[in-house]
């Protein structure tokens, strides 16, 4: 007779499934960029865990797994050439300033991984933006700063792969796979990733004219370049810093996608998802106040 139903997942269970979903993306990143990626991801994770323990002064706070996920996400945003100590600094800033200053898990206003990423992105631009040709950000730069040449003339550039950015296209495919798993086990709803991807696709479809000098790069290229899939499935869906209402999710996701594209096209940075997420986080209270949630029953 003893029945003890549990919630469908505990918070720890959510984080464990997120980690499972990150496995294919991480594996492909290691395959594409070499074992340096492992060093980067592991150092980011360890620094995040250490910072979490320092901030909460307890080891029990690790049981929810959120620090591990933050660290790994930050590591996966990194270009492969970055020194590991910079990543560790990013993790510490993300966990310390991005999360615990606001009161810890559930109370942070900004996505901790993105806070850490942006902090080191603006502090160490040399190490984080100038790297070898095998990376997506470079491909994004090549497309963005190609001057008067058409996309067709860029066709054989070594940084461009089959349909996305070399290397990153397969990483994005793997993150898409992991994200599909998260949707399948109902950790995340499909609305947020779709909203982000639509937000990225819309401007590219509107301004893609077959590849002239003024064109934005093909929609396919942008969907499979840089951190697109990572953002759509793993970063924008962070429950703490994203809205919960259906309409609010769409507003938030479209904002993230379109802002990412605007930064990719007009911004100083090659990829814009981190800034887009932080801007969307800033707008979140506004979105939650202005966009209506569901109506009550019987009314």
């Amino acid at each position: 007779m003893a029945v003890s139903p549990e919630p469908k997942f505990q918070t720890t269970g959510i984080m464990v499934r997120v980690l499972i979903a990150l496995v294919p993306g991480t594996a492909v990143a290691v395959w594409a960029f070499g074992l340096r990626m492992i060093t980067i991801v592991v150092s980011a994770m360890l620094a995040a865990v250490a910072m979490e323990m320092v901030c909460t002064r307890s080891i029990k706070s690790l049981r929810d797994g959120s620090a591990v996920v933050t660290g790994i996400l930050l590591g996966l945003c990194m270009p492969p050439t970055v020194p590991f100590w910079i990543v560790a600094i990013g993790s510490c800033i993300g966990i310390g300033i991005g999360k615990h200053i606001y009161g810890g898990l559930g109370k942070n206003l900004f996505n901790p991984a993105m806070v850490g990423y942006v902090a080191i992105l603006v502090s160490f631009p040399e190490q984080l933006t100038h790297f070898d040709a095998l990376t997506g950000a470079t491909a994004l730069e090549v497309v963005s700063h190609r001057g008067s040449s058409t996309l067709f003339e860029l066709g054989n550039h070594p940084s461009l792969g089959l349909f996305g950015a070399a290397g990153y296209e397969w990483i994005n495919c793997a993150f898409l796979l992991g994200g599909a798993y998260l949707v399948a086990v109902r950790i995340i709803s499909w609305h947020m990733p779709l909203a982000v991807l639509v937000g990225i696709a819309c401007p590219t479809v509107l301004f893609f004219d077959g590849g002239s000098a003024a064109s934005w790069g093909s929609p396919l290229f942008h969907l499979f370049a840089g951190g697109t899939m990572l953002t759509a499935f793993f970063i924008a869906t962070d429950p703490v810093t994203s809205p919960t209402g259906r309409a609010q999710i769409w507003v938030y996701g479209l904002f993230v996608g379109i802002t990412t594209m605007l930064i990719r096209k007009y911004g100083a940075w090659a990829d814009g998802f981190a800034f887009a997420i932080l801007l969307a986080n800033i707008l979140l209270p506004f979105i939650e106040r202005r966009v209506p949630v569901a109506q009550a029953w019987n009314r």
Binding site: S66, G104, L105, G106, K107, P239, V240, T244, G245
Partner: peptide, 11 residues
Amino acid sequence: AMPCIRCGWCD
């Protein structure tokens, strides 16, 4: 109980 992570499953 652990902190609310605003997942919205209650909604």
